[in-house]
C-alpha cells in the first residue's frame, strides 16, 4: 500500500459495505442494523460481519423470523428518529413483506404531506448462478424500481458499494440497496476477480442517481448493472482483441435512473446492448429502450439487443440455470450481432 494522501486499499465488496456501515454507525448513533442472522453470523452474505462485536446487540439486532415484522418495525423506528439498516436476506422473500415496503415504506412521506420521513436502508441479496433455485436467485430490481417513493441502488464493485451505502444511510428517503451475491467476493461463491477492488479510505460518497462509464468505447454500448457489469467488461476485453471497441455503462442506481448517461452513450455509439439479469418483460430493459426512443428514435442505428432472463423462473439445475442467465457468451453474441459481425 502506498502512503499517498488519498490512499486506497483493495477490499472485497462485502467488506467495503461493512466498512461503510461501521463508519456511519460511528458517526451517527441513530444508525442501527436489523435483520435475520445479522448478528453473530454477520449476514449470510457477509454484509454485516463484525458489526455485532463492534457495536453490540442494542444496535445490531437479530430479529424474530418475520420479514414483515422487522421491516415494519424498522419503518416505525425510522419515524421515531432512528436510521435503521434492515436486511431482507434474499430479495425473493419480498412476497411476505411487500405491504410494508410498497404501501408504507414508500408512501408514508407522501401521505403525511411531507411531514414524516422514513430514512432507512433496505439491504437485500439478489441474483443467481449458484443453484439456489427459483425462490432464492431472482434480481427483482424492476419490481422495486417500479414503485414511486423508493430509491433503488445496485452497486457492482467494492468502491461503489461503500460509496452508495454511505449515501443511502445519509439519505432521508427509504433506499433499497441490492447487492448481488456474485459481487460480494465470498469464498464459497464462484471466483470473481472484479469482486475485489480499490476502495478509498475515509469519506467516500457515490451520489445516488449517477451512472458510471466502466469502460469507454466507440463501437457499441452495453448498458447494464450489478454482476452483469463484470461479464460485460470481460466481454469488452475479449472483443477489443478482435477490433470491437465496447463501451460499458454501469447504471449503479435505478431510481433515480441516469437517463442522460444512457442517452450520451447511445448517441456516441448508435448501438445498444442491454444486459439485465432480471426478467426481460415489463422491466428495466424495456424502460431503457423506451427512454431512448421517447427522446430520439434516430439515436440508434441498429435494433436494440436485449440479454435478459427469458421470462422463466430461475432453474435449480445448473445447466438450465446458465441457459437462463445473461452469460458472457450471450452478451458477446449480442454485441457481435449489434456490430453486424
Amino acid at each position: 500500500m502506498s502512503s499517498n494522501a488519498a490512499p486506497t486499499r483493495r477490499l472485497n465488496t462485502a467488506k467495503a459495505m461493512v466498512e461503510a456501515i461501521a463508519r456511519e454507525m460511528e458517526r451517527d448513533e441513530d444508525v442501527c442494523v436489523m435483520g435475520e442472522d445479522v448478528g453473530a453470523y454477520g449476514g449470510i452474505f457477509s454484509s454485516t460481519t463484525g458489526l455485532l462485536e463492534r457495536f453490540g446487540p442494542q444496535r445490531v439486532m437479530d430479529t424474530p423470523i418475520s420479514e414483515t415484522g422487522f421491516i415494519g418495525a424498522a419503518i416505525g423506528a425510522a419515524t421515531e428518529g432512528m436510521r435503521p439498516i434492515v436486511e431482507l436476506m434474499f430479495v425473493d422473500f419480498f412476497g411476505v413483506c411487500m405491504d410494508q415496503i410498497y404501501n408504507h415504506m414508500a408512501k408514508i412521506h407522501y401521505e403525511s404531506g411531507g411531514n414524516v420521513k422514513v430514512p432507512l436502508v433496505l439491504t437485500t441479496a439478489v441474483g443467481g448462478g449458484y443453484s439456489d433455485g427459483a425462490q432464492h436467485s431472482q434480481c427483482l430490481w424492476g419490481t422495486f424500481a417500479h414503485l414511486p417513493g423508493l430509491k433503488v441502488v445496485v452497486p457492482s464493485n467494492p468502491a461503489d458499494a461503500a460509496g452508495l451505502m454511505t449515501a443511502a444511510i445519509r439519505d432521508d428517503n427509504p433506499v433499497v440497496f441490492m447487492f448481488h451475491k456474485g459481487v460480494q467476493g465470498l469464498p464459497w461463491m464462484a471466483k470473481n476477480r472484479r469482486s475485489i477492488g480499490p476502495v478509498p479510505e475515509g469519506e467516500h460518497v457515490v451520489p445516488i442517481g449517477k451512472a458510471a462509464v466502466a469502460r469507454e468505447g466507440r463501437d457499441v454500448s452495453i448498458v447494464t448493472l450489478s454482476l452483469s457489469v463484470h461479464h460485460a467488461l470481460d466481454v469488452a476485453e475479449e472483443l477489443a482483441a478482435e477490433g470491437v471497441d465496447v463501451e460499458v455503462l454501469d447504471l449503479r442506481s435505478l431510481v433515480p435512473l441516469d437517463t442522460e448517461a444512457i442517452l450520451a452513450t447511445v448517441a456516441k455509439t448508435g448501438r445498444l446492448v442491454i444486459v439485465d439479469e432480471d426478467y426481460q418483460s415489463f422491466g428495466l430493459s424495456g424502460e431503457i429502450a423506451a427512454r431512448i426512443v421517447e427522446h430520439d428514435p434516430g439515436l440508434l442505428t441498429v435494433p436494440i439487443q436485449r440479454v435478459a432472463n427469458p421470462d422463466v423462473p430461475i432453474p435449480y439445475a445448473r445447466a438450465l440455470e446458465y441457459a437462463a442467465l445473461p452469460t458472457p457468451a450471450r452478451i458477446k453474441a449480442a454485441v457481435l450481432k449489434a456490430v453486424a459481425r
Binding site: I71, G72, I75, G76, M82, V116
Partner: peptide, 25 residues
C-alpha cells in the same frame, strides 16, 4: 399521532418499531 392507517393492522408494526426506538433512546 401518526396519519390514520387504512391498511388493516399495518400500523401495529410501526408502533412496535417506534417503541424499540423509545427504548433505545
Amino acid at each position: 399521532i401518526a396519519c390514520q392507517q387504512i391498511v388493516i393492522g399495518a400500523q401495529t408494526l410501526h408502533a412496535a418499531g417506534y417503541g424499540m426506538g423509545i427504548k433505545f433512546d
